[in-house]
Design a protein around this nucleic acid. Structure first.
Lengths: 199, 199
DNA sequence: CGATTCTTTGAAAACAGTCAATCTGTGTGG
DNA sequence: CCACACAGATTGACTGTTTTCAAAGAATCG
């Protein structure tokens, strides 16, 4: 499973065999079974985590006990809580496995060392952060400018495998609506596309 | 007005006089009158912009011509379109001045050079990006977990001067609701706090 | 003062949430 | 292999909230 991470790196930057070995030696591989936690609210988070297999969700829990999905992470995505990592404070989020999942884990100190030792790696990490920022900005823009129905369709189109693997109630939560409302939106759009194909 | 930027830098990192002179020599100071554009949709954006005075808003315009406020930037905040800067593509956003505004402008190439020449400056920039990411993540979390009323109260509490200087319809847009709804929320909470103070 | 911009209010319609019941598919143990 | 439990998805009736549209009321600026 480390191979998935290696392939990811090879796709982004070019590394010598020694550099690969150096990075690999700082990594720990972890497995999570479905429903197991990677991180629980109130705990500290001091790692970088790269998903090589499976599917994670990051969510918060409000005072009433309702869960709110902030983000998903599947193969070739990074997961974790940047806020807790940067601040050193206990996390306000939970991360658990929607499917059996495998993760490459790197301790923050070691990760920072890699960034210093291999500048291309550091640059890559920076670009990822920049892109994550842009993705969140676009999500905010969507949330204030685009109706749920259209947002859901875009989501399915842009992330078909996520949409297929994530239960509907979590997708609804991701958009900030109830599962009932999303179910009805789905029903409506299914009819629409049926009408279109008849035309 | 450059002094405001200098004070900001001094507050974040320590720089020698030469370094300050070096940075200053790469900066251009710009003034915008109320309603003037810093950036218009479809144009390229190749700068970093630091607000030393006044107030900017970044917004998108949908197909129906409605404006949607993504963010505000006042004194000691950075403004601009990271997406257009990173991708080199024309911007999808507009930035204009809510008040007469003064800005310190640095060309991207010169900015990157500063980051390389003065590592502390580069680190600072990185931390800002990380914090911006976290701020957006929290905004997304709020948008799916917290009712408008509470979000508005938090906003007023956390950014009283913004709330006072930005017209209500733009704040409503920032939250993705209509100005009428925000007006009514305000009315309701005003009554509540009145009741509380009578108790 | 008059013009413009910003905010508030009211009434009706559209939309989303809640609660409760039902349906569907999956997997487990007997 | 069946029956049952369970998680997930759907539906209906009802309630509550937000939008829309139209009008009018403040506030600000030249």
């Amino acid at each position: 499973m480390y191979e998935v991470f290696k392939a990811y790196l090879d796709n982004k930057i070019s590394l010598t065999e020694e550099q690969h070995e150096y990075i690999r030696s700082r990594c720990v591989v972890k497995k999570l079974r479905k429903k197991q936690y990677l991180l629980q609210e109130g705990n500290h988070w001091n790692n970088k985590a790269f998903v090589t297999k499976g599917l994670l969700r990051t969510y918060s829990v409000d005072e009433k006990g309702f869960e709110h999905v902030i983000s998903f992470a599947m193969e070739n995505w990074w997961a974790g809580d940047r806020e807790a990592l940067l601040s050193g404070q206990p996390s306000r989020f939970n991360i658990d496995a929607i499917e059996d999942t495998e993760i490459v884990f790197i301790d923050k100190q070691k990760f920072d060392a890699i960034c210093r030792e291999i500048p291309a790696f550091g640059d890559m990490v920076n670009t990822i952060l920049e892109r994550s920022f842009i993705a969140f900005q676009n999500r905010i823009n969507d949330s204030i400018s685009t109706p749920f129905e259209e947002r859901y369709l875009n989501f399915v189109q842009q992330h078909p495998s996520l949409a297929a693997r994530v239960p509907l109630n979590m997708i609804a939560s991701y958009f900030g609506i109830t599962r009932e409302t999303l179910s009805r939106i789905r029903h409506k759009t299914a009819k629409k596309s049926l009408v279109k194909s008849i035309d």
